[in-house]
Design a protein around this nucleic acid. Structure first.
Length: 436
RNA sequence: GUGAGAGUAGCUCAGUUGGCAGAGCACCAGGUUGUGGCCCUGGUGGCCGUGGGUUCAAGUCCCAUCUCUCACCCCA
């Protein structure tokens, strides 16, 4: 195979997802869709490309995402457009532009699809990655914050993913956060000698980000920094207490992480992250929180909102360590020998496929032994054999690959015979992809 | 963006001080003239990631580049 010279490879950090793995993706997506809809969420689909300004305004100019991770291109007219690095901004945009709030300010929406960030690829981190997002607009109550976290834990439970931790924090609101910011940056000014260069810059632009810098020097500085939860105003404190109480009531364990700060500017009050220890450095499988000021900041009415994003790629990685990627095995394999038999077999395969029976057929003119080997490798439950002998006798042979039993079926009644055999076999045992 | 490791058959990997490109699995065929899994025999398959350089000679040494992996960073 001389192909390297001309072979074009995929872009760094991008990947192909092959059929075997897709079964798992579909299962995860379907689980989310069913669950979210039972909680009253409806699907929305928004574009992958948006104007760059949308993300600059929503995510924040001084975030890593906007400063260095976005795929941004100029159009012919010179307008900057961006491959979305996250979905919330687009959903808010749609909520406003389509005036969804006018019909009903309360909207519960979910979406799923690819996001793009130009980071250095790593385990669990890709430049095109997939998220499932859920957002609630128009509800300020802490109950909904807790319910979304509850819904997430249900989701992971349904996928049999264990060993997760809920990390929780409150980031305050425009009323109380400034006081905390002031206290924090004052403290960072005093004791900031050990800060890394990045954090010295952040100290002015976005002091909260210094809190979750993982460098030892910054950690030690931050160790006895004031906790934001001590600065919350009465409303924010009550809100936070309520969220915690609800989680306790629903039996969801959580850890309050005062240093948990979201990488996006728009968050207020509740912030949370769901982490695992099994994925190395990229330990967040879901993250989200409240963003009560974003809708208004993007030019809409003042409406509170909460949301989260689940990292699908990481979920798949986790699930792959538990369950093996599944093969989709055919119900029946048709082994046809000779020209005349293949003609019959072709018709049967079309008919059986139309009936919803997973049918595999090999049109290469090979020995029965070779065809049987292939049927076995594909994991076919049955093999239907037909050749000149069978055509002369007016029958085909149906072999149960598990029990090795063979029965003869009249050529005229092949479809009915195969169907009744398959039905009889599947009655006794569980069928299909139940091991997921 | 920074650092470290790796790229040889479809897959997992050997390859000595630079000297004819290897194994296991998989695949194909035969053993069994029409019956799978086990076994035996044989076979197909490689510009050694790509491009340059050093050398009589490069999978091996040097440079560049691409991709992967892990970490920093960041987050889903």
């Amino acid at each position: 195979m001389r192909r390297h010279r001309f072979m074009i490879q995929l872009i760094r950090g991008f990947k192909d997802i092959l059929p075997n793995e897709i079964e798992l993706w579909k299962h995860i997506e379907q689980t989310a869709i069913t669950l979210f809809e039972s909680f009253g969420f409806r699907q929305i689909r928004v574009p992958i490309l948006e104007k760059a300004a949308l993300f600059q305004r929503s995510i924040g100019e001084h975030t890593d995402i906007v400063e260095k991770e976005m795929y941004t291109f100029p159009t012919e007219k010179g307008e900057l457009i961006t491959l979305r690095p996250e979905a919330t901004a687009s959903i808010v945009r749609a909520y406003l532009q389509q005036r969804m709030y006018a019909k009903d300010p309360i909207q519960k929406l979910y979406t799923l699809g690819p996001m793009f960030r130009k980071e250095r690829p790593q385990k669990g981190r890709y430049r095109q990655f997939y998220q499932i997002n859920a957002e609630v607009f128009g509800i300020e109550s802490p109950y909904i914050d807790a319910q979304m976290i509850f819904m997430l834990t249900r989701f992971f439970r349904q996928l049999s993913i264990t060993g997760l931790e809920v990390h929780l924090n409150s980031l305050g609101c425009p009323l109380c956060r400034p006081a905390f910011k002031k206290a924090l940056s004052g403290m960072l000014m005093e004791k900031g000698d050990a800060l890394c260069s990045e954090c010295i810059r952040r100290r002015d632009t976005n002091p909260l980000r210094v809190l979750d810098c993982k460098r030892p020097g910054c950690q030690s500085v931050v160790e006895n920094a004031p906790a934001i939860t001590d600065y919350l105003c009465d409303d924010c404190a009550r809100h936070f207490d309520r969220v915690k109480a609800c989680l306790e009531r629903m039996g969801i364990p959580y850890v309050v992480s005062p240093r948990l700060v979201r990488g996006l500017d728009y968050y207020t009050r509740t912030a949370f992250e769901i982490q695992t220890r099994e994925l190395g450095a990229q330990n967040a499988v879901a993250g989200g929180g409240r963003y009560d000021t974003l809708v208004e900041a993007l030019g809409g009415p003042s409406q509170p909102a909460v949301g989260f994003a689940v990292g699908l790629d990481r979920l798949v990685d986790l699930a792959l360590t538990k369950t093996r990627a599944s093969e989709l095995t055919p119900d029946i394999f048709i082994a046809a020998m000779g020209e005349a038999a293949q003609e019959k077999a072709f018709e049967w395969s079309c008919e059986l496929g139309r009936e919803g029976i997973k049918t595999e057929i090999d049109f290469s003119d090979r020995s029965l032994k070779a065809l049987m080997k292939r049927a076995n490798r594909l994991g076919a439950g049955y093999v239907l054999m037909v050749g000149d002998q069978e055509l002369d006798r007016g029958t085909a042979v149906l072999r149960n690959m598990r029990t090795r039993e063979q029965t003869e079926i009249a050529l005229s009644g092949v479809l009915g015979g195969v169907k009744s055999q398959l039905r009889a076999a599947s009655d006794g045992r569980p069928h299909g992809d139940s091991q997921l």
